[in-house]
Measured scan of single mutants.
Amino acid sequence: MMITLRKLPLAVAVAAGVMSAQAMAVDFHGYARSGIGWTGSGGEQQCFQTTGAQSKYRLGNECETYAELKLGQEVWKEGDKSFYFDTNVAYSVAQQNDWEATDPAFREANVQGKNLIEWLPGSTIWAGKRFYQRHDVHMIDFYYWDISGPGAGLENIDVGFGKLSLAATRSSEAGGSSSFASNNIYDYTNETANDVFDVRLAQMEINPGGTLELGVDYGRANLRDNYRLVDGASKDGWLFTAEHTQSVLKGFNKFVVQYATDSMTSQGKGLSQGSGVAFDNEKFAYNINNNGHMLRILDHGAISMGDNWDMMYVGMYQDINWDNDNGTKWWTVGIRPMYKWTPIMSTVMEIGYDNVESQRTGDKNNQYKITLAQQWQAGDSIWSRPAIRVFATYAKWDEKWGYDYTGNADNNANFGKAVPADFNGGSFGRGDSDEWTFGAQMEIWW
């Protein structure tokens, strides 16, 4: 008995050590931004985005507190085989008060198993909700290839000249389909599951310092038995992507060409959309029709120009041509140079221009935006974070068209359509004006 009692403290210590080691193995990653800002004409900070554009130049032009908190852990490992559990909870508030209630979004919860298939060394099996191989332009917060959501897949299969990845994910639309009631009355209240099937071939070395990635995505509306879509709904579509990445000037340049059809055009990033119906009456549900095509040509990157200068840049042309004439032509160009006074202090400027032409009206909206920021960051790279910055932003815009969301679809035949700025004596778009804002912001990723 005495021997047992003497061994007990040692056993407890060993158990505590094991539990401590396991606790220390938890990975904590994430992203956050928050700050305070004012508008020159009075009131809180207002942000500037061109009507019809899918993004905006973000430096000194973000008006919310946003965070993603990721917890993950390698829960099992034997040799080169392992299982990893990953989670991500995100939230966004308007940064107007101390207490701002919000419903967090559970954006990731997945398990990734590496090297589980003997004859596919280096590959990963995964299932669950996941940010899946996302491609974006940081300076405009624009995701041009992103099929994230609940799904499953097999990735990084070594095929000799590259890595092959296969995945299936889902994005549902509210009110996407109906069941038959009586007297030809349909009640569009059932969600429609939109499935996306993704095939990618990446890391193909085609020139010194250059790699090529090719991808095909097929999206479709997956209806339940005895349900139907509204007439004209976009049932399926394709997205084709080619991306060349070149190492240059201690950074990279990415050149991207994408072509999409029908349900893959509205978001243009790989998620299927077009079966959703915002109104019970299918007579007024025309606005979900996105049959047509999209072409996107994009070049972006980040480079170092000597010891003291870094720069991000982007140039993009996007043409969404829809059968219902509600598409757009959008082109944007911008730069973000950074001058480093010390390894932790810099001055950053961002200059961006957007131009969006309405397919329906032929009119154009444009905006110039310039931001000057003094910044303190954890390192001497344009990617170094955390960063604390004080900024001043000036924007000038001239908008000739907007979307008509007055009333509702039952009493407005133009609901959701592009109209000229002065349509029917109204005021659509943001008109011709300018404004400036100033404030302070922190940004961090880890």
Rank of each mutant, 00 (worst) to 15 (best):
W397R: 09
D158Y: 15
K235Q: 15
A440D: 00
A15V: 01
S266L: 02
K7I: 13
S148F: 12
M264K: 02
D307A: 06
F391I: 02
K254R: 01
K56E: 14
N411D: 07
V348G: 11
A25V: 02
Q359R: 11
K417E: 03
V257D: 00
G209V: 12
M204R: 13
L166M: 08
K283N: 10
D363E: 09
N88T: 15
K417T: 03
Q22E: 05
N308I: 01
N156Y: 15
N226D: 00
F197L: 12
A373V: 01
W397L: 07
A21G: 04
V390D: 00
S384A: 10
W145R: 15
G42D: 07
T211I: 12
G251C: 07
F106S: 05
S304P: 05
V75G: 12
G151C: 13
A193T: 03
Q112L: 13
S82N: 04
E78A: 10
A105V: 08
G30V: 05
V314G: 04
Q22P: 06
S266P: 01
K400I: 06
G315V: 08
G334D: 00
E44A: 08
A13D: 06
K77I: 02
F240C: 12
G79S: 14
M24L: 03
K114E: 13
K329E: 01
L295Q: 01
N281Y: 15
N412H: 07
N281K: 01
V18G: 08
V26I: 00
Q49L: 12
G276V: 08
G292V: 10
R33S: 10
Y317N: 01
M24I: 05
L71F: 08
G379D: 06
R58L: 12
V216L: 06
V348E: 10
G162S: 06
K254N: 09
S178F: 01
G379C: 15
A32V: 02
Y227N: 04
N287S: 11
Q367H: 07
N183K: 06
D98G: 14
D98V: 04
S263P: 01
K129N: 10
N183Y: 14
P386Q: 04
W376C: 10
T371P: 15
G113D: 02
Y84F: 15
N412T: 08
M442I: 11
V199M: 03
H244L: 13
A278T: 03
P343R: 11
N290S: 04
A15E: 07
G210D: 01
W331G: 03
R336L: 06
D98E: 03
T393P: 06
G402V: 06
G30S: 01
G40C: 05
T261N: 13
I140T: 15
Y339C: 01
L229P: 03
A233P: 07
L295M: 06
Q46H: 12
H293Y: 01
I125F: 13
F83L: 03
H29L: 06
C63G: 14
K235R: 10
Y353S: 14
L239F: 08
G219V: 03
V89M: 06
A392E: 11
M316I: 04
L10Q: 05
Y405N: 07
A181V: 06
S41G: 06
Q95P: 11
S433G: 11
N424S: 10
A67T: 07
V248A: 14
